[in-house]
Design a protein around this nucleic acid. Structure first.
Lengths: 235, 235
DNA sequence: CGCACATTTCATGACGTGATGAATTCTACG
DNA sequence: CGTAGAATTCATCACGTCATGAAATGTGCG
């Protein structure tokens, strides 16, 4: 049990082939545990790569970038930690691979949803909530938001979302000529705050409210930021 | 240099008094470096305890609970890491001590500021921004928010702020009988989102805007959540 | 002075982390 | 068949983390 890094005595040559190792008592918990000896490649399509990505999304979503560990991801994927490095090189590599792919889906989703300028507010909030409620997109988003507070690349992604996606998609429909970037940032602040309190900090009344109720209450605020009025037909 | 935990040979009795150690080449960077030999107490009021608390606030503010380390705090305070443990027992202990004290100031500040019900929106946003702009209160708040995404106690503090402080102080002035907790949570979501984008993620137009500009733009939204109308004199 | 106590540092333990390199097994292509 | 390469695991390394216990040095009280 005692790990002695500097032990020079009894250092068996690492090149010695070993075939005498018995099952290490927890090998049953690994993928393809039933058959297959130990170290080499498995037969057929093991799906390990995908399993790692799924596990990574979960871990990053629940613990954020700093809190997630390669060992934890490997454990959840029932795979050796070194395999994670083999496929994705580094921790940053797993993160990028796990997040980026789904971010494209999010972007496409937003692109395919037409936002009418006359009640953009409610539509934007509805779309935002749909993305968060759907686990496929929601968990990676959770990962980005959880990581954004201390991981620079995640912060950058969030910045790009606010400055790029919101400004382009939402405000592009109702251009105000001036102040567009500020309006986009204010919309972003309301949306990010909503996600923080509903999905991360879990403030009580908020995380129980049905999505449509939130749409009804927050929609006008987004509308106000975009057009300067509470609803389209007021005034 | 090589650290050998299991080294049993050459283990000099730990009780042996040592007076032959020369200055370890970086001892100048410690507090009271000029005078004083090495290990014991320093003369006069060293202020180490306060230095540790200050350093802790900085570290937690910049890296969050998980990212901050006792060694990092000790380094910034120019103190041995063990001293941090001596004063505050554990990492959680430093965090609590560093944060709690200032949170009382925040609470008192909020209690002493009267919120008139007729333009509560702008007043609340102004007070919120004042707390964040002032480093004395702002940096601990940064620490709480940065930690809230992954540290349970910080999340709890944030929940209590939204469910307690906002509901009691802001909505207490303009009671709506029904839905108070939901209104408080919505106000909280806007404020938390604002802090996230302005002070943590640093979205461009937002963190340059003068506070009063933000008050003017976000105030009506808070007012809307509280009273259901954009301004007091509309309608 | 002498003794209890607070403050300070050192040495070390026990453990977790990301990363690397070699060994082994399987697949695919010639 | 033979062999290049992909997939998988093991054994470590080097380091950083929180935490503890003991030793050394100061202060203050009787």
């Amino acid at each position: 049990m005692a790990r002695v890094p500097g032990d020079e005595e009894a250092s068996r040559p690492p090149a010695a082939p070993r075939a005498d190792r018995a099952a290490s008592a927890d090998s049953f918990s690994k993928r393809h545990s039933a058959q297959s000896g130990r170290t080499g490649r498995r037969a057929g399509d093991s799906g390990s790569r995908r399993a790692i990505l799924d596990a990574a999304r979960n871990q990053f979503a629940e613990r954020g970038y700093a809190g997630a560990t390669i060992r934890g991801i490997a454990r959840e994927a029932r795979v050796d930690p070194a395999l994670v490095h083999h496929f994705f090189v580094s921790k940053q590599g797993v993160f990028s691979a796990a997040i980026r792919q789904v971010l494209d889906v999010v972007e496409a989703e937003m692109a395919s949803t037409e936002v009418e300028s006359d009640n953009a507010g409610e539509q934007v909030v509805r779309l935002f909530l749909q993305l968060w409620e759907n686990p496929t997109t929601g968990r990676p988003l959770l990962g980005v938001l959880r990581s954004a507070v201390s991981h620079e690349e995640s912060g950058q992604l969030l910045r790009e979302f606010v400055s790029g996606e919101i400004l382009g998609r939402v405000l592009g429909k109702s251009p105000q000529i001036i102040d567009d970037d500020t309006r986009a940032a204010l919309v972003g602040s309301q949306l990010v705050g909503l996600a923080m309190l509903r999905y991360i900090v879990q403030v009580e009344p908020l995380c129980q409210l049905p999505p449509e109720e939130i749409v009804r209450r927050v929609g006008p605020v987004v509308q106000y930021y975009v057009t300067g009025q509470l609803t389209a037909e007021s005034g």
